[in-house]
Simulated scan of single mutants.
Amino acid sequence: MRTIARVLPVALAVFVVTVLAGCGAPPELSEPTALPTHTAAPTPPGASTAPATPQVTAPPPVAVTPTADAGLVATACRNGPTGQRVVQLLRGRAGVLPANVRVQVRTGPLCAADWQFTVLEVTGHEELQVVTRGQAAAPTLVTAGTDVCTIEVRATGPAGIRALACEAGPAAGPGA
């Protein structure tokens, strides 16, 4: 009877822990845990009746290596176009900037997947946000202006570019 009285609370505790484990974080986000084990054996006559210490085994260390998508966060371009290449694109085929206006790269280019985001200071005008995509040597203009959160950027741009172009809002220019 004493054995059942000692085993029953432990079994109940294991059952409760097992049931509650289903209410926590998804399995891929939680670290494995070891449950305490307890072995009940009959107590020989004359032996101590103090409860035995449960044996706990620590789980082996787990190395978590994040495998984030390249488009989730925009970072400084390593293999993307330079700021000068973006300015050349805007002055050239795109015809966004005239040849006589002074332009300085303020931010970027920042890359997420094969998209880029750049902010330019244009003398005598508001800041110009530029979204491009493609290879470093030949980027394609997606949009340029003070508010570059277009349908194309929202629908097809990577999350890192959408965060810069849409969540930050339009650029504030001089006198704004």
Rank of each mutant, 00 (worst) to 15 (best):
G173Q: 05
P36Y: 00
R91I: 03
V56N: 09
A176I: 03
T57K: 13
A136C: 06
T65V: 14
L97K: 02
T49C: 11
R2D: 11
T53K: 10
Q104L: 12
Q129W: 01
R102I: 07
T146Q: 15
A50I: 10
R102H: 10
V148W: 01
L164E: 06
V131H: 01
A94I: 04
Q55M: 09
G92P: 04
Q116Y: 00
P174D: 10
G24K: 15
T140C: 02
D69I: 01
L110C: 04
A176K: 08
L89M: 07
P42E: 07
P27V: 14
R6L: 06
V17G: 07
A163N: 09
H38K: 07
T53D: 11
T67A: 14
T67H: 13
L97P: 03
R106W: 03
I4L: 15
Q88D: 15
V142L: 07
A47C: 00
L110F: 05
C111Q: 11
R102W: 04
A99W: 04
H38P: 00
A47L: 08
G71Q: 03
P170H: 12
V105D: 05
V130Y: 06
T18F: 06
R133Q: 15
A137I: 03
A172D: 08
A171E: 01
P109T: 02
G169T: 02
R6I: 02
T65G: 04
R85Y: 01
A74Y: 02
A11D: 11
L29E: 15
A41N: 11
A63H: 10
P174M: 07
R91T: 12
A58G: 09
R91H: 11
L35R: 15
P81R: 00
P60K: 13
T39Y: 09
V96T: 15
P44R: 07
A165T: 03
E28V: 13
T75M: 10
G46Q: 03
V14A: 14
L8R: 14
F117Q: 05
A94K: 01
V101I: 09
T53M: 07
P98F: 02
P45V: 14
R154M: 13
L110S: 09
L8Y: 10
P9F: 11
T82P: 03
L35I: 09
Q55K: 15
T75P: 01
V131A: 04
I4Y: 04
R154V: 05
V10L: 02
A11P: 02
P61H: 04
T75G: 13
G80P: 06
T43N: 06
V142W: 01
C166I: 09
G173K: 06
T140S: 14
E31S: 15
A21T: 12
P139R: 00
V131P: 00
A99S: 14
A47D: 11
L110N: 00
T146G: 10
